[in-house]
């Protein structure tokens, strides 16, 4: 909510009819640029970056909607649903696991799958986000005493820690030795929360295995 009040709700809207020249320029740098835009939305709740993503993708999502849902009204709804999910769940994006384009496609596919099933009155006991998780599990899993154990073990495991890839070491240090929250790490290193979590998970699993190997 801090982010919401930080910038005034003013958004500059580029003209809807993009000149062909612009389209070419956009394609040339699209991959990295897209990742940066989504990362900016993920970390800083950057409204300007979101507005750009919105203009780049609402047409594509609409087209996907017309293809799968075959109905103008529902295609519009899909655009709205997808864009809202991107805005809300951007922190789940993990740049280690795929591109921003793939992640946005996954969001659109998931929303469209749910809408299609709702239209056919199929049971809602499983949702698309269960089938294709958009990132790390959203529920907080309670680690309880395990965290403390991990922490204590880690203190005696400096050597093992150094065997991890640099990117993972850094995050383990920040979280376990400097007591930073995942959000703080995300902002400091400029990587999405999803990436912080997946790297941390990989590191912990490696450390666990390495402890297991000792016993």
């Amino acid at each position: 909510m801090v982010y919401l009040s930080r910038t005034p709700p003013m958004v500059t809207i580029p003209p809807t009819t993009a000149a062909p020249m612009m389209a070419v320029a956009r394609k040339a740098k699209s991959g990295d640029c897209l990742d940066q835009l989504l990362t900016a939305v993920a970390i800083h709740r950057d409204r300007e970056a979101f507005a750009q993503l919105f203009h780049m993708y609402s047409g594509k999502v609409h087209r996907l909607g017309m293809k799968t849902l075959r109905n103008e009204q529902q295609a519009k709804e899909l655009v709205q649903d997808t864009m809202l999910t991107i805005w809300q769940k951007a922190p789940l994006f993990d740049s280690d696991k795929g591109t921003a384009n793939t992640w946005i496609f996954s969001v659109a596919r998931n929303r469209s799958f749910d809408m299609l099933r709702k239209g056919k009155a199929e049971p809602q006991c499983v949702s698309a986000d269960d089938i294709w998780p958009l990132g790390e599990p959203p529920e907080t899993e309670n680690l309880g005493s395990e965290t403390l154990e991990d922490f204590l073990e880690l203190r005696n495991l400096q050597g093992r820690l150094e065997e991890l890839p640099e990117a993972q070491q850094e995050i383990v240090r920040m979280v376990y030795l400097e007591d930073k929250t995942h959000h703080e790490v995300s902002e400091e290193l400029m990587i999405p929360l999803g990436t912080v979590k997946s790297r941390l998970r990989l590191a912990i699993n490696k450390l666990r295995n390495s402890i297991g190997g000792l016993q």
Partner: peptide, 25 residues
């Protein structure tokens, strides 16, 4: 597209938990 964009940007953000790391339960 402006009204849709505005309505999305004014939707409150959910609290994405600072979830601890665990092998999925």
């Amino acid at each position: 597209p402006a009204p849709i964009l505005d309505s999305i940007l004014s939707t409150p953000l959910p609290d994405l938990p600072d979830a601890p790391v665990a092998v999925s339960n």
